[in-house]
């Protein structure tokens, strides 16, 4: 059972993700962040709810839209921001950037730029855990787009037949870049795919952090007890463009507005108010988060860049 403290912590984490993303976007517009990245704004409840169902020593695999997963699994936003700013103090010494943030110590086996490529890795990690009999579970985040890759099919089937301790969390944010799920699937619910692999599948509201937690909790326990994988389709929405170069000609402003009215943070805020949490407490959490992010930005800006010699040493273990 989640205590009120837990729920306040979930709120803090969701707001931390939102603020991290919004400030990162501003830094990009100011020309301080290079390249491109994929923002998680609007999807915060999926990562926070799912990761809350894990133990600290469990693993996750992430995606190209991975900042939220990373924060939810307990990453230090200083080192994340430093990575986005290509600094030596970043999680990947500035060599990986946004799309490759990994926080292995905290069990985050990394983001990936190749859609679907985390699914075999999660399956393999679960196999490794099973072989080591270490009682750990792997939670695999991927998107609706990844569910149409060949990697998905091979991996979910293998995880199912080997009864591996892995939970597949499909973040259905309604679009694979510009390609709507309505066009990409002949099924109404992606979770129906689970039937074809002989594993449980469920479609839930990914903007409801509590439902996200409860559903994942059941799946994680099932996995930990050796009963195999579960497929969770978490329905959510990406508020921002796919990446930094998206004109968003494939969706309407009305649709975006409609989903923004289902803000996962506002949803939890409403719940907490009903639980008699005062405005001041919520405000204090927000202010602390905002201070943490500013501190992270300053840390990143003051950090040195990696050298070529250092990069050369990273090629082989």
């Amino acid at each position: 059972m989640l205590s009120l403290e837990d729920k306040l912590d979930m709120y803090r984490k969701m707001y931390l993700i939102r603020t991290f993303e919004e400030r990162a976007e501003e830094l990009y517009m100011e020309g301080k962040i290079w390249g491109t990245f994929h923002l998680y704004v609007g999807e915060e409840a999926v990562a926070v709810g799912a990761c809350y169902a894990l133990r600290a020593d469990d693993y996750i695999t992430s995606t190209h839209r991975g900042h939220g997963h990373c924060i939810a699994k307990g990453a230090d936003v200083k080192r994340m921001m430093a990575e986005l700013l290509a600094r030596d103090t970043g999680y990947c010494h500035g060599l990986g950037g946004s799309m490759h943030i990994a926080d292995v110590e905290k069990g985050n086996l990394g983001a990936t730029g190749i859609v679907g490529s985390g699914i075999p890795i999660a399956t393999g990690a679960a196999l490794g855990c099973k072989l080591q009999n270490n009682d750990k579970v792997v939670l695999c985040f991927f998107g609706d787009g990844a569910a149409n890759t060949g990697a998905f099919h091979e991996s979910v089937n293998m995880a199912a037949i080997f009864r591996l301790p892995v939970v597949f969390v499909c973040e259905n944010n309604m679009y694979a870049m510009s390609f709507s799920v309505k066009k990409a699937f002949a099924l109404p619910d992606i979770a129906e795919r689970a039937k074809g692999y002989g594993i449980p599948g469920v479609s839930i509201d990914g903007n409801n952090v509590l439902e996200m937690y409860e559903t994942t909790k059941v799946a994680v326990e099932r996995a930990r007890q050796g009963e195999g994988p579960t497929f969770i389709e978490a329905r959510t929405y990406r508020w921002k463009g796919h990446s930094k170069s998206d004109r968003q000609s494939y969706r309407t402003k009305e649709e975006v507005r409609e989903w923004m009215s289902k803000d996962p943070i506002k949803f939890l805020e409403k719940y907490l108010r009903e639980e008699k949490v005062g405005e001041e407490e919520l405000e204090n959490i927000k202010k602390q988060v905002e201070r943490d992010i500013e501190e992270a930005i300053n840390f990143a800006l003051e950090s040195p860049e990696p050298t070529l010699e250092e990069a050369r040493r990273m090629v082989y273990a």
Partner: peptide
């Protein structure tokens, strides 16, 4: 090119 995957850091990316 250098014997390494493409690095994210812009200075290194250019150098390799």
């Amino acid at each position: 090119g250098e014997e390494m995957p493409p690095p994210y850091n812009p200075n290194l990316e250019r150098k390799i």
